[in-house]
């Protein structure tokens, strides 16, 4: 930048032209981004307003872009008639538990890989194959195992599956964070008499906490979004939000239009929350591996 300024001082005419181009470029940049924002956020806007409309507004023409009298009755309907509260709570509980357990299980593994190169290149191959595998190849055998153990329709069952599905990605991210961690600090702690596990828990964890938060939030979202396992491995007490949404997709869609859109709004809330919380880490984290388990 300094060089550019110096040069523009020498050749003022060129600098002026440069500035015009630059201004135009900025304008186009923001215009382009604004267009992108409209495209990528438009559907959310439509769903939100639909969920707040009265039944008579769905089919109105010209369309009701913003309801004059927003009403929450579809949300009320969702929570009273369709046990929306139960589904929402289930999703929350399962996602939170999976998030915690994914972290707890992945951290030592990542440590083992980062410090001692445990497993060599196996991790990346495993990661690749796991990513290729359609869920349907796993679902029936897992179901059969679970049936034998009696943990279908149980938080534990889903939490275990989600934890495992998320381990490779979590480990991959955590290895990155741990490799950057200065060995000297860890050694100092161990010289002071810390065991390795305590050094991990009390010295390393607090320092890489922001990185762990990134891993945790991505895991939360990935779990929240999953639905095929959620249909097969759950029962009446453990159904999740995604299952509720798909139960609106056929048959009575027309009659429960408002409630269907309300359920979508609730279903995408965590994505918004996580995106805002992770603003600065998105590029670093999501770029490494994606959120779709």
């Amino acid at each position: 930048m300094a060089i550019a300024l110096e040069r523009s001082a020498v050749v003022p005419q060129r600098a002026k032209r440069h500035r015009i181009w630059r201004g135009l470029g900025d304008a186009l940049t923001y215009l382009g981004l604004a267009t992108a924002l409209v495209f990528f956020l438009g559907p959310f806007f439509w769903i939100l307003t639909t969920s707040l409309k009265g039944n008579e507004d769905f089919f109105a023409f010209p369309p009701v872009w913003i309801p004059a009298e927003p009403s929450l009755k579809h949300y009320v309907g969702l929570f009273t008639r369709s046990s929306g509260a139960r589904y929402f709570t289930n999703s929350m509980v399962i996602s939170t538990l999976s998030m915690i357990s994914a972290l707890v299980v992945s951290l030592p593994t990542a440590y083992s890989i980062a410090r001692w190169r445990f497993g060599g290149g196996l991790l990346s191959i495993f990661l690749l194959v796991l990513r290729m595998l359609p869920a349907i190849a796993l679902i029936i055998p897992i179901y059969i195992v679970y049936r034998t153990l009696g943990i279908t329709n149980n938080y534990l069952g889903l939490v275990v599956v989600y934890t495992v599905l998320y381990i490779p990605f979590a480990v991959w991210l955590l290895v990155g964070f741990l490799r950057d961690f200065p060995l000297e600090i860890e050694e100092a702690a161990m010289i002071d008499g810390c065991s390795r596990l305590r050094a991990l828990a009390q010295v390393i964890v607090p320092i890489i906490a922001p990185g762990m938060a990134v891993v945790a939030l991505f895991s939360f979202i990935a779990t929240w979004n999953e639905f095929l396992f959620a249909i097969v491995l759950t029962g009446i007490e453990t159904k999740t939000m995604m299952v509720l949404v798909t139960s609106f997709t056929s048959g009575g869609t027309d009659m429960f239009y408002g409630e269907a859109s309300a359920s979508v709004v609730l279903g995408v809330l965590p994505a918004f929350a996580v995106a805002f919380m992770l603003q600065r880490y998105l590029v670093k984290g999501l770029a490494l591996g994606g959120t779709k388990g």
């Binding site: 990528f40 998105l282 779709k292």
Partner: peptide, 14 residues
């Protein structure tokens, strides 16, 4: 960036 990233964090079903 965060606003533009939201679709990628939503499930395919949604």
């Amino acid at each position: 960036t965060a606003l533009l990233a939201i679709p990628a964090m939503v499930s395919p079903v949604m």
